[in-house]
Amino acid sequence: MAGFIIIICLLTLSQYIFGWKLGIDQWLFRDVVSSATPYPGRMGVNTALNFVLMGLALLLLGQNSQRYTWLAQIFSSVAALISLLALFGHLFNVDILERLVTITTTQPINTIATFFILYGGILLLCPREGLMQVVTSPLVGGVMVRWLLPWAMIFPVAVNWFTLQGQNLAWYNANFGYTFRSAIMVFTFSILILGTGRFLNQIDYKRQQAEKEIKKINETLEDLVAERTDDLQKSQARFAGILEIANDAIISVDRTQRITLFNQGAEKIFGYKMEDILGEPLNLLLPEQFRDAHPQHIKQFGHSSSRARRMGERGEIWGSSSRWNAVFG
Rank of each mutant, 00 (worst) to 15 (best):
R309Q: 10
F270W: 03
S305W: 09
H297T: 13
R291M: 07
S306V: 11
R291K: 12
Q296C: 07
I277W: 05
S321A: 03
I298H: 03
F301C: 04
Q300R: 11
S320E: 08
Q300Y: 10
S304P: 07
F270N: 00
N283L: 07
L285H: 02
E316A: 07
Q296V: 15
S305P: 04
S320M: 10
R307S: 12
G319F: 06
R323L: 10
E316P: 01
I298C: 02
Y272H: 10
R310W: 07
H294S: 04
R291T: 08
H297M: 13
L285R: 00
N283W: 06
A308H: 11
E316H: 06
R309C: 07
R323V: 10
I317V: 15
P295L: 06
L284S: 01
M311G: 05
H303P: 00
L284C: 02
S306D: 14
G319V: 06
G302M: 13
Q289L: 04
G271W: 09
S305Q: 09
G312N: 02
A293I: 12
G302A: 14
R307H: 12
W318R: 05
F301S: 01
G315A: 03
A293N: 08
R310L: 14
F301G: 03
R309S: 13
M274W: 03
S322P: 00
G302L: 15
R314K: 14
F270K: 00
I317W: 05
R314S: 08
R307Q: 14
G312S: 03
F290H: 06
G279Q: 06
R314W: 11
G312W: 08
L282S: 01
F290R: 01
